[in-house]
Design a protein around this nucleic acid. Sequence first.
DNA 1: GTCCGCTATAGGACGTTATCCTATAGTCGG
DNA 2: CCGACTATAGGATAACGTCCTATAGCGGAC
Lengths: 132, 132
Amino acid sequence: MPKSADCPCTGATLTKLVQPALLATLARGPMYGYRIAEELARLPIVKGERPDTTGLYRTLRSMEKRGLVVSKWAQSKVGPDRRLYRLTPAGAACLERWVQTLLDYHRGIADLLAKTKAACVRLRPSRRKGDK
Amino acid sequence: MPKSADCPCTGATLTKLVQPALLATLARGPMYGYRIAEELARLPIVKGERPDTTGLYRTLRSMEKRGLVVSKWAQSKVGPDRRLYRLTPAGAACLERWVQTLLDYHRGIADLLAKTKAACVRLRPSRRKGDK
DNA sequence: GTCCGCTATAGGACGTTATCCTATAGTCGG
DNA sequence: CCGACTATAGGATAACGTCCTATAGCGGAC
């Protein structure tokens, strides 16, 4: 997704499904990177393994540069300071655009799935006539 | 998706949804790049615009290197020669694995969509009490 | 008290992927 | 002959993902 002019929420690319997940998570209130990683790990889409933190932090920074989130340092009682991220109105608007994009993906993948299944059936007339 | 050891059909990444589309298209019979591009342009997932041909040709080459397809030159009566691609058994197996992966994506996106919608509702108590 | 592990953020390096621009070459119609 | 369409492909660059490493606070084990 070269051209960074348009947000991924326009559906320009399928990568970065992390972004809507991230925005949706931040919509529940301000949060910091490490915690967000834990939250994202629970999503079925990333199933289990916690996302690479380096990538996540970089994504957050780039989203801040694009005005979708803002951050400020906050103290912690149990460890090092945290960079607390908060959704901006632009981020909320972006999240709303994601709804349509995700609907498109959902339909598109359903279509692709149907075509893939059909292709598989066509490819394996393995067990034919008396197939039980 | 560094590690090229595992095929995208394992669900390692969301990029390259072109690949199942491509495999499903080739499952209907041998075809060449330019024509595949036309076919892909009809899919709802890429909606309208024909995919970048450079990327498509490179994807085909990499898939050949991975043994999913094989190619041979074929003459054309209406233009320059074409590189005809054909699915291999490995490619067919890959296509079958894609079914489960696409199912996972389908469910994952549905989940993400639900969470995104819920987040949007939470974010806009805009019109509240008497909202008509 | 020191080492180890957990929390928390981040840079460097590298490989992969996507896309823009350009090059090539055959065919056909005006 | 030149432009449009067909057909494939390299170069360059941007974007993205991930591995490795660095820093630093905190708490428990030994």
